[in-house]
């Protein structure tokens, strides 16, 4: 199935992900957190189901448990005492705060995994290539940094293993030495590769005025509609943020703004915003199905 959302204009995608990731980071209200976490998971699963499930159960869930358990042991604020550990109180508020911050962290990680799949480095360079050429090149290189290094270190390790110098061959000292050697090869390769890339980009006139991009994205009618819908949904969320609908006090005791009609509207707008990729895909599917 084609992901219609990912085919939108890079500017719309960039606006969308920046807004959603920033909102997820700063809104610690449980309703907002739940919406963001749920939609982040759903969007990530729509993009790559297997990877999302593996990531969630292998990394996010254990992290959630550990953060929930560790926060009350380090932070003793809060009015409701559950028990005393080493004469310091373990409080319900600290437990809840640990859980919420773990949820926030998971949601942001899930949204970033969507970002990485949807906004590829060529889209970033297309967006910022003429405004800030060196910055956008650096940014796209940095984003590729970890996966690329991982692939390269595997190649180097295999080659070293072939001549009996792998990081798991020999005694502990020899293994340490071989490991250091592999890292040294990787560093050399990285420096050389950086220079080569920079030279190559310069030779092709990167950053000059009037240069065209590899990918060309037209801002068509569909992008326009998506952008307008996004901006319309951003307004109530910003309104909620300014009137304090997203505020929560964890210490010394929990305090939230009471739920009212307005806050329900803000929650609905935030849900629509977070579920936008899924709704957009569904809408396009329905439309194309009808036209056939």
């Amino acid at each position: 199935m084609r992901n219609r959302f990912a085919e939108l204009h890079p500017a719309v995608l960039f606006l969308y992900f920046t807004a959603v990731i920033l909102f997820s980071m700063f809104f610690m209200h449980p309703v907002f957190l739940a919406i963001s976490l749920f939609c982040g998971f759903a969007c990530s699963a729509a993009l790559h189901l297997g990877k999302t499930l593996r990531f969630s159960f292998r990394f996010l869930l254990p992290m959630l448990l550990v953060m929930t358990a560790v926060n009350p042991l380090l932070n003793h604020r809060g009015a409701t005492i559950l028990l005393y550990v080493n004469d310091n109180p373990v409080t319900r508020e600290a437990l809840l705060y640990g859980f919420s911050s773990a949820c926030m962290f998971s949601a942001v990680l899930l949204w970033f995994s969507c970002w990485n799949t949807v906004i590829t480095s060529d889209k970033l360079v297309y967006l910022f290539g003429s405004v800030a050429p060196s910055l956008s090149l650096l940014f796209s290189m940095v984003l590729r940094f970890v996966p690329r290094f991982k692939a390269q270190i595997r190649t180097i390790e295999n080659a070293q293993k072939g001549i009996g110098k792998g990081a798991d061959q020999g005694s502990i000292f020899i293994r340490a030495k071989n490991g250091m050697n592999i890292l040294s090869i990787l560093t050399t390769w990285a420096l050389e590769n950086g220079i080569t890339t920079a030279d190559s980009m310069r030779a092709r006139g990167y950053g000059l005025a009037g240069r065209t991009s590899f990918s060309i994205y037209a801002f068509n009618k569909r992008d326009k509609t998506a952008l307008i819908v996004l901006i319309v949904m951003l307004f109530p969320v910003f309104y909620g943020a300014f009137t304090g609908e997203n505020n929560i006090r964890y210490y010394p005791s929990l305090a939230v703004k009471p739920i009212s009609f307005v806050s329900n509207l803000v929650y609905a707008a935030y849900f629509l915003l977070c579920a936008f990729p899924l709704l957009f895909n569904a809408a396009i599917e329905v439309k194309e199905h009808d036209s056939i």
């Binding site: 005492i81 559950l82 028990l83 005393y84 550990v85 080493n86 109180p89």
Partner: peptide, 13 residues
């Protein structure tokens, strides 16, 4: 083993 865990007293709760 180094941790001393205690429940808050009934009056405190």
């Amino acid at each position: 083993a180094g941790c001393k865990v205690e429940l808050p007293s009934q009056h405190a709760a």
